[in-house]
C-alpha cells in the first residue's frame, strides 16, 4: 500500500448555530454548515467577515461564544491529528530543514524512526519536494514553502484539512501552479477540507460547495454547490465563469460596505 490512506475517509463535520463576539462586536452570527467527508468546502466573504475566525473555531484554536462544532464518524486509524491547519504565512520553522519541519509534527507521536522517515519521504514525494528535503525555508520561494506546509499537513494523515487563505501570500502565477497541485493531490487521494479564501477564482476551482458569508457579523448568505469534477474545471469554463460572476454579484455590495467600514479599534 503505497499511499496508506484516503484522507478524510469517514469523518464529517457539522457546525451548529455558531455565533461569536469579541467584547461587544459580533463577528459571526448563527452559522450552521455541514462538511461532508471527501469534499472541499470553500468559504468566501468580504474582509473582516470572520471567515478565519470560523476556521479557527472548527479547528479548536478558538472557542465560540455560542453554538458548537461537532465531528462524527471514524478518524482514520493512522491519523495523528484529525483537524490540521495550513496557514496563509506557511508557519514553517526557519531553523529546521524541509524534512525537519515535517518531522516536527510527528515527533510527539509514538512512531518508530522508520515509520516517521517513511511518512516524511511519502509526503515529500507527493508534493515533489524530495530533492529539497535538506533545504532551509529561507532558501525556498513562497510557493515551495506552501508546498512544504501542505506536505507537513498531509504527514499527520488528517481527517480534515483546514486551509486559511493558503495561497494569498503568493503571486498569481504561483497560485495557479499550486491550485493545480492541490487538484492533483485531491484527485489521487480525495481529502476533506475547509478552504477559506477571498479569491473567488480559487473558490470555483477547488470548492465542491462554496459558502458565501455576509459582512460583519458574518452570516451564511448562500451555499453554492458545484458538481464539475475538480480536474475538469478550467479558467475558460463558461459554467465556472458564471458561478464566479454570481458569487461576485452576491459579494460586491457587501465588500463595498465592508471596505468603507472603520477598522474596529
Amino acid at each position: 500500500m503505497a499511499h496508506p490512506t484516503i484522507l478524510g475517509a469517514g469523518m464529517d463535520l457539522k457546525i451548529e448555530q455558531l455565533s461569536h463576539s469579541y467584547d461587544t462586536v459580533n463577528v459571526l452570527s448563527d452559522i450552521s454548515l455541514q462538511v461532508p467527508s471527501g469534499q472541499i468546502m470553500c468559504v468566501v466573504g468580504p474582509s473582516g467577515c470572520g471567515k478565519s475566525t470560523l476556521l479557527r473555531m472548527i479547528g479548536g484554536l478558538e472557542r465560540p461564544s455560542a453554538g458548537q462544532v461537532l465531528q462524527s464518524g471514524d478518524v482514520p486509524p493512522d491519523c495523528l491529528n484529525p483537524l490540521t491547519f495550513v496557514f496563509q504565512d506557511f508557519a514553517l520553522l526557519p531553523w529546521r530543514s524541509v524534512a525537519g519541519n515535517i518531522e516536527l509534527v510527528l515527533e510527539d507521536h509514538p512512531l518508530d524512526g522508520a515509520a516517521r522517515a517513511a511518512r516524511v519521504a511519502d509526503v515529500l514525494a507527493r508534493t515533489n519536494l524530495s530533492d529539497f528535503a535538506k533545504a532551509l525555508p529561507r532558501q525556498l520561494s513562497g510557493g515551495m514553502k506552501q508546498r512544504v506546509a501542505i506536505a507537513r499537513a498531509m504527514a499527520v494523515h488528517p481527517a480534515v484539512m483546514l486551509m486559511d487563505e493558503p495561497l494569498s501570500a503568493l503571486d498569481a502565477q504561483t497560485r495557479e501552479l499550486l491550485i493545480d497541485d492541490l487538484v492533483g493531490l485531491w484527485m489521487r487521494a480525495p481529502f476533506t477540507a475547509v478552504y477559506v479564501t477571498h479569491n473567488l477564482a480559487e473558490a470555483v476551482r477547488l470548492g465542491h460547495q462554496i459558502v458565501v458569508l455576509s459582512r460583519r457579523p458574518g452570516r451564511v448568505r448562500e451555499v453554492m454547490h458545484l458538481s464539475t469534477p475538480l480536474d475538469q474545471r478550467s479558467m475558460a469554463d463558461p459554467g465556472l465563469q458564471a458561478a464566479q460572476e454570481r458569487l461576485w454579484a452576491l459579494m460586491r455590495d457587501e465588500a463595498l460596505a465592508a471596505d468603507k467600514e472603520l477598522a474596529h479599534a
Binding site: 479547528g59 491529528n81 491547519f85 496557514f87 508557519a91 520553522l93 516536527l104 509534527v105 515527533e107 510527539d108
Partner: peptide, 27 residues
C-alpha cells in the same frame, strides 16, 4: 517569537514542552 508558529504547533497537537523547546526557545 512569531505567534503563528506557536499556533501552528498547537494546531498539530504538539505537547506544551515540545512547543517551548522546539519553537519558543529557538525562536
Amino acid at each position: 517569537v512569531d505567534r503563528t508558529l506557536v499556533r501552528m504547533g498547537q494546531s498539530f497537537g504538539l505537547r506544551w514542552w515540545s512547543i517551548v523547546r522546539k519553537i519558543v526557545l529557538p525562536g
